[in-house]
Simulated scan of single mutants.
Amino acid sequence: MISFVKEDNTIQYLYSKIGKHHIDAGTGNQDSVYIGKICDETYCLVVSDGVSSCKWAKTGSEATIDTIRTLSTKIYHNEISIDDGDGIKRFIVRDWKNHFDESWNDYGTTINFVIWSRGIVLAGQIGDGLLIGVTDGENFLMTDMDENYSVETYALAEVVLKSSIQLTVRKNVNNLIAIAMTDGIGKEMNMESIYEFQDYFVDLIKNRDEETRNKEVELWMSQLNQKNDDDKTIALMVLEGKT
């Protein structure tokens, strides 16, 4: 799946492809991704990776999209304070759990997201994957991965430690770049040059023609497929001059 939208000083790009592991298992792509405008002056980006060992992982990852869209709306209407980190964490966990009657461990998923609403940016992460971006020239980075990468990770499930939910808040943001990716891509990134990658990827998506853009991304993903057989999802959101 590839999608590209450029309008109203915004760019929305996403790429998602099933990995060999899930092709062989016949389970489908367990990643879910969303980028879009939620309401006036409010956008969000969500990338989730259903935990492969969970019975209904895809359903779990899909539910995060609805949760973050709802959170975006509540932030816009001042129903949840951007400064109430604990309240935001409780809302994410409770709202996601409310999508299912019980057996939350069957729906385990990681999540990376960014919300922009009237100049406020909220970025969040539970579990692995990689989230990078720039707000008015100031970089941010969120990752639960390191050189000692493990198949074990935090996730939305029956028990979610408050300390496992990372949040970053930026205010009075006029320009935003955010890139989120699941661990099928993120764990292969060179963290020492991550912001050079960020600049290159934004230029590729923003300024190159469709054929060049698609050919280069497909080549990159083919190379990553030689390194791991995970699903691979990446999303980019660019907002310019929004306040």
Score class of each variant (00 low, 15 high):
45 L>S: 03
211 E>S: 09
75 I>P: 00
124 G>F: 14
182 T>P: 07
41 E>L: 06
143 T>W: 12
235 A>Q: 07
227 K>C: 03
162 K>D: 14
89 K>P: 14
133 G>I: 14
72 S>N: 05
104 W>T: 01
173 V>G: 14
135 T>Y: 09
60 G>A: 05
172 N>T: 12
23 I>A: 13
215 K>P: 00
48 S>K: 07
212 T>A: 00
145 M>P: 12
121 V>M: 13
188 E>A: 07
27 T>Q: 14
111 I>N: 14
8 D>I: 04
134 V>Q: 04
169 V>I: 15
45 L>T: 03
147 E>Y: 08
221 M>G: 11
23 I>T: 15
181 M>A: 11
203 D>Y: 01
93 V>Q: 02
218 E>D: 12
63 A>W: 01
103 S>T: 09
229 D>Y: 06
67 T>N: 04
177 I>D: 06
202 V>P: 10
222 S>I: 03
188 E>I: 05
210 E>W: 07
124 G>E: 06
42 T>M: 01
202 V>S: 11
7 E>Q: 12
43 Y>M: 05
226 Q>M: 06
56 W>R: 13
186 G>M: 11
164 S>E: 05
9 N>D: 15
123 A>T: 11
84 D>P: 08
52 S>L: 09
233 T>M: 02
111 I>A: 09
223 Q>L: 13
148 N>Y: 13
90 R>S: 13
51 V>A: 06
161 L>I: 05
157 A>G: 04
121 V>K: 13
8 D>W: 00
169 V>R: 13
12 Q>V: 03
241 G>R: 08
24 D>W: 03
22 H>F: 12
6 K>N: 05
239 L>G: 13
141 L>G: 04
146 D>W: 13
56 W>C: 11
7 E>P: 10
204 L>V: 07
121 V>W: 14
57 A>I: 02
115 I>G: 00
8 D>A: 15
81 S>D: 08
96 W>L: 00
28 G>H: 14
125 Q>D: 01
73 T>I: 06
126 I>H: 05
27 T>C: 03
40 D>G: 02
219 L>I: 08
160 V>I: 10
30 Q>Y: 08
223 Q>R: 10
165 I>S: 01
241 G>C: 05
76 Y>N: 00
220 W>S: 00
